[in-house]
């Protein structure tokens, strides 16, 4: 019998186009996002629950919610 790997949803930031405005930081309910040196946003995957609030808020729409293996 084949085992199916459990998958979880996590936010990932397209750093090349991120403007580091911090909108994602403000809406994250788990404080999982922070701005690295004023250049781009970074998601802490340990904290991220993949709710997608940051992706909806991002004015540049550079945050994606992806399903990844646990």
């Amino acid at each position: 019998m084949q085992t199916v790997a459990k998958r979880v949803r996590k936010a990932t930031v397209g750093r090349e186009y991120c403007v580091a405005c911090g909108c994602c930081v403000k809406v994250c309910p788990k404080s999982a996002v922070h701005i690295v040196k004023g250049i781009f946003a970074e998601v802490d995957f340990e904290k991220c629950i993949g709710c997608g609030k940051c992706a909806r808020e991002c004015p540049a729409s550079v945050i994606a919610i992806s399903e990844v293996p646990l």
Binding site: A20, C21, G38, E42, E57
Partner: peptide, 30 residues
């Protein structure tokens, strides 16, 4: 989006450029 201005705000672009220059384009990820 509500804060679309932030994407092309000249002050935001300028400060991001300054931050990039300060870090020497060599940001070590956590």
């Amino acid at each position: 989006k509500p804060r679309s201005w932030c994407v092309y705000c000249p002050m935001g672009t300028m400060t991001q450029l300054i931050c990039k220059a300060r870090s020497g384009n060599n940001v070590s990820l956590s």
